[in-house]
Structures are given as structure tokens and as C-alpha cells.
């Protein structure tokens, strides 16, 4: 496991974006060989998306041969609702880049047969050859995607009922009206993310500090589903200083001491311009 600690949110976002950029550019994706990316929503990855858009606008990266799979979507929320994850992805990422709409996959929370929709999603991931890099965020209770505490650590894409904590936390996005907050979602399982060849988890802010502690300093526990990634061979946690507040000094010092190694992953930055023949 790698733990990358940056000074603040902006630097953590930038580091994550640089990493994604390097991975995509170095994979040299083409019509025969797409790069597959798993993507999160929420406030944490916003800064990272902004940076990726900037790289795209500068001509350093292209998403023409990238396939994306989003982690989750609410059930029963109209797709064009401003809080739907379709709207989020469109407004914060897809509309700004050159991805082919046919390659952008988001679960349909309004599908007639929800479980079938989930099974199809898994199949599409398999057809794409699996996910090269799954980017995720976590909730304060350590949930990854909508795998609430208690979710099976080998779960697959499925319908999930939200925990009361999550519903209450989400009320602020729905005019503080609890009756309007969706109570069910479609979400990839912990096992789905575990299957990715590489996983990057973004954790920023003091309110996520306890979750980060549970994720890396305690044992694997289905009450903190993100802890499952201790058993993934290639996982990077990218966090800011605030998120380390609950960690032991020893842990923080150890990983900070490794920063010169980790920084080699993003420095130098690669660009598609380097590969133009």
C-alpha cells in the first residue's frame, strides 16, 4: 500500500490528477487497446477533475481511447436531476473532455430491472477487459462507493439501501427535505473495485481522518469497507494533512519519508505531445 500525503486539498487533487494523467498517457491507449478508468463522484474528486480538464485543454491528455465506469447512481432519481451522478459527471467532467459518449458508463438508476442493470454493468466491465485504474473516494464512515458499513467485502454491483447516516448527510443536497432524498442506489461492490488492476483512493479533510485511520491502521473490517484495500496489491491512498490527524506519528513520518519515491510516479509528467510521431 502507498500513502501519499500532500499539504492541502489542492495539492492532493493535483497529485491524483497527475498520476491519472501519467497512467493514461503511458498506457498509450488506441482503438485496439482502451484504457479503462473507474470514477467516483462527490466533493472530494472535484479538484482532480478540474486538473484533468486543464490537462485536456492544454493538449496533454486525451480521453478518446478511454472507457469510464462510474461507481454508483441513485435509484429513482430522474437522470437530469441536478443531484444525479449523471448530471454530476456531465457537468464536472464529460462535457469538458473528448470522451466518446458510448464509452462513458454510468449505472441507470431508473432501469426497469435494477439487478439486471447491475449484472449488465459487471459484464460491460469484463468486456472492456477489466478496470486499469479505479479512482474512489470514501465517506466519513469509511464506505467506498455506496458499500455502507456491513457490506460484504466480496460484494458485486447491486442495489443497496442507504444507511440512515448517509441519508441524513445527503439531505443538504435535496433542500434539507428528507422525503426527497433517495434511499436506494445502484453501486459497484467492494469486490468489483478489488478486481481493478490498480486502485487510488482520495481522502481529504479532517472529517475523514478517522476513516483513514480505520482504513490503514486497523484490520480489514466490513464495518469500514475501504479497509478491504489493504489486501489489494496496488492501492494508493492520496490524502491531505488534515486527513492524517488520527494517524500515528510513526505512520505519517514513515510515509512522508517515502514521498521522494512516490513523487517519481508523477514527476516527470508525461504528455501525449511526447508521443506524437
Amino acid at each position: 500500500m502507498r500513502l501519499v500525503i500532500l499539504e492541502d486539498y489542492d495539492l492532493a487533487s493535483e497529485w491524483a490528477a497527475k498520476y491519472i494523467r501519467n497512467r493514461i498517457v503511458q498506457a498509450r491507449p488506441s482503438a485496439d487497446r482502451y484504457f479503462t478508468l473507474g470514477l467516483p463522484t462527490g466533493s472530494t474528486p472535484l479538484g482532480c477533475y478540474k486538473k484533468l480538464i486543464e490537462y485536456y485543454k492544454n493538449g496533454d491528455i486525451s480521453f478518446k481511447y478511454v472507457k469510464t465506469f462510474n461507481m454508483d447512481e441513485y435509484v429513482g432519481l430522474p437522470r437530469d436531476h441536478p443531484e444525479s451522478y449523471h448530471s454530476y459527471m456531465w457537468n464536472n467532467f464529460f462535457k469538458h473532455i473528448d470522451i466518446n459518449p458510448a464509452n462513458a458508463h454510468i449505472l441507470d438508476g431508473n432501469a426497469a430491472d435494477l439487478q439486471k442493470e447491475c449484472d449488465t454493468f459487471e459484464q460491460k466491465i469484463a468486456d472492456a477487459g477489466g478496470i486499469d485504474l479505479f479512482v474512489g473516494g470514501i465517506g466519513p464512515d469509511g464506505h467506498i462507493a455506496f458499500n455502507e458499513p456491513g457490506s460484504s467485502l466480496v460484494s458485486r454491483t447491486r442495489v443497496k439501501t442507504l444507511a440512515q447516516d448517509t441519508i441524513l448527510a445527503n439531505a443538504r443536497f435535496f433542500g434539507n427535505d428528507l422525503s426527497k432524498v433517495p434511499t436506494m442506489t445502484l453501486t459497484v461492490g467492494v469486490g468489483t473495485v478489488m478486481d481493478a488492476r490498480e486502485v487510488m483512493i482520495l481522502i481529504t479533510g479532517a472529517h475523514k481522518a478517522f476513516a483513514l485511520y480505520k482504513a490503514i491502521e486497523e484490520g480489514v473490517n466490513h464495518m469500514w469497507t475501504v479497509s478491504a484495500f489493504q489486501q489489494h496489491p496496488r492501492t494508493i491512498f492520496v490524502c491531505d494533512e488534515d486527513a492524517t490527524l488520527e494517524l500515528r506519528v510513526k505512520t505519517v513520518k514513515y510515509f512522508k519519508g517515502l514521498m521522494h519515491v512516490h513523487n517519481k510516479l508523477v514527476d516527470p509528467m508525461h504528455s501525449v505531445k511526447d508521443y506524437k510521431d
Binding site: R79, D80, H86, S87, W90, F94, K95, N100, P101, A102, A104, I106
Partner: peptide, 11 residues
């Protein structure tokens, strides 16, 4: 364009 993207997969 959002409908174009998601419904028609057009650009």
C-alpha cells in the same frame, strides 16, 4: 447536450 450525450451517445 447532456441528453445528446447520455440518450443518443452523440457528439
Amino acid at each position: 447536450p447532456e441528453k445528446l450525450f447520455f440518450d443518443e451517445e452523440g457528439f
